[in-house]
Write a protein that binds this DNA or RNA. Structure first.
Lengths: 201, 201
DNA sequence: TTGACAGCATACCGACTGGTCTGTATTGAT
DNA sequence: ATCAATACAGACCAGTCGGTATGCTGTCAA
């Protein structure tokens, strides 16, 4: 029995437990029974707040993953006029902070879900793509400002660079996770930094 | 009833059906029942040739995915002394040929399995990592030869470049699959080509 | 105080899962 | 011809899956 009935709190607990379970086992490998157990509630609550497993998945993308990514990556770059410097700092911070608590093992929650679910469920794909679009747009805008500010070469295409950086980032995290190798993470990152530096005027 | 009893043929049918099913639904989403149905055989046959679902997965990586990747990517580069030119040609061929039959929808079979299974099963991770290591080593060797032949800048680190290219390739295919966009695939690829060109002497 | 309804708990459901077991047909060596 | 051993076939199993139906309980407006 709960301390006091609190709908919003229950919902958040289910969302968080869902995120954890999806992150750990993938969406298809995730178990609703384990989710409600971790959330310290029951199926009645879950199916009261969400229409089903898929719906919970969309909500996790929208209400857990997206805000987290936005806060961690998009917001710090929102007004940057020197994206190369700022990106390198963000990457370094990410490797240092987040790799400690399991990113190297489990990879990127967004990319994990995308690789697994986007071919299987169109709504999933669209939910996830929205996050990617936001991240790419943010990067492209930052590079456009960088060009204006003279911190980036004039003849680069912001959208092209943004598309590549997002892809490279996902790929680096993914291959490093499979190799379970910080060394590989560092090697690939240094190469990415080389690429970024090649965009300087 | 089969035309004639043929152990090797049955085994190959199960491997191929397993590959198809894993590729389409992911490993956890794959169904043994569907696999034996597609392979036009029964559970008896499957469990005669393989110890279980996981064992079939390892075999698919070893005997289907690895040889295919090797033939398609590693072999053509095995003796290259101008990896930048040859890689660009291989990439272009890949986008043209394979994107037609579902690579844009389903992504890279190796990377799909890696992202899903490597955190969940150490044997899976090692099987997959072997393929990645082969691909990276092949690339690194090609760049080392390129340096000697003067087609690549002297001061680049072959291993670093190889790690980055493999990661970028996986990332590009993955993000393009999620976006379902050939345009994104081309944008990111052109940026990768820019990077490759920056390694010229 | 009393309905009315949201918020949840629990028992339960059919479908399907990976895996086992037993039986049988085919094969190759002797 | 005989005898194992191999190569399956198909019934069967316990367990888990996502999802539902029903009913109780706390909350709050009237």
């Amino acid at each position: 029995m709960k301390a006091t009935r609190n709908s919003e709190r229950t919902r958040r607990q289910i969302l968080q437990a869902g995120f954890d379970e999806f992150y750990k086992n993938g969406f298809q490998g995730a178990s609703i029974n384990r989710i409600v157990e971790k959330a310290d509630t029951t199926k009645g609550a879950l199916f009261h707040h969400f229409r089903g497993k898929n719906d919970l998945g969309y909500a996790v993308v929208r209400e857990v993953i997206h805000p987290h990514l936005k806060e961690q990556w998009a917001d710090p770059l929102a007004k940057s006029t020197d994206p190369i410097t700022d990106l390198k700092r963000l990457f370094r911070r990410c490797w240092r902070d987040e790799m400690a608590d399991g990113q190297l093992r489990q990879g990127c929650p967004l990319n994990n879900l995308a690789q697994e679910m986007s071919p299987l469920d169109e709504k999933f794909r669209k939910s996830l793509e929205q996050v990617y679009v936001g991240w790419r747009d943010c990067l492209a805008d930052a590079f456009a400002r960088g060009i204006k500010a003279g911190t980036v070469k004039k003849n680069v295409s912001p959208r092209k660079v943004a598309a590549f950086i997002v892809a490279a980032q996902a790929g680096i995290i993914g291959t490093a996770k499979n190799a379970q190798s910080e060394e590989l993470l560092r090697q690939a990152s240094r190469a990415l930094f080389d690429y970024l530096d090649s965009l300087r005027p």
